[in-house]
Amino acid sequence: MIRKLIQVEFLKSKRKGFWLLVFLGGFGVVALQMVNYGVRKEYLLQQSDNDWIYYLMNISNFTPLALVLGIAILTSFMTSIENETNAWKQLIALPVSKLTVYLAKFTVLAFMLLVASLLLTLFTYGYGVFLDLGAIPYGALLKYSFYPFFASLPILALQLWIATVSNNQAIPITTGVIGVLPSFSAQNLPDWLIWKWPSLMNSWNEPIYYVWLGLGVGCLLYFVGMFDFARRDVK
């Protein structure tokens, strides 16, 4: 059943511009560095001994911003498909469990973000090679592309929960936009704030902690959201 529901979610996301957003998310972050390096490459190369790592750091400054913003937009698109004509009642009156409906939506969103992260890896790699920065640190490249994805799962779970249970779609948009702000000033914020996590900066200096925390807290928030959704009467 879950496989069918996921196929249906992909069918419904047709012509909604989801994939364009996914592409723009991955490409946009690298495009900013294309401008940066295009304008002042000589200067930037003088800033550090390890040009590749310095380039990755520059990119990862903007990854959290794109991720958190992307999550806010994608989740609200996803629920707007049902909210627009109140199709929830049509969907839930079919022989499906509400838990599966919720899982399908979450899975599709997580998949889109994963694709965006993969695109980010490819574009980062491509432009890095073009800049000819020396030996390629594959480990660091993957780390800075995929760790933020796992670290942002709690935000995805929270946004999906808010977006599915809100009657007023201004609420999830607001929380989504407010969530973007911490990614600008991550170093000044406490470690427990989930919106800080995609930046991978923490007081232990161990980015991997946020991956585990992201998976754990993400699961927790996912289950809370799913059961709350199932408990409520359909609009």
Partner: peptide, 17 residues
């Protein structure tokens, strides 16, 4: 529900499809 068909209130649909 697998043996029930229903139309509740205003019709629901996906306008972009």
């Amino acid at each position: 529900l697998s043996k029930v068909g229903s139309l509740v209130e205003n019709p629901s649909y996906y306008p972009h499809l």
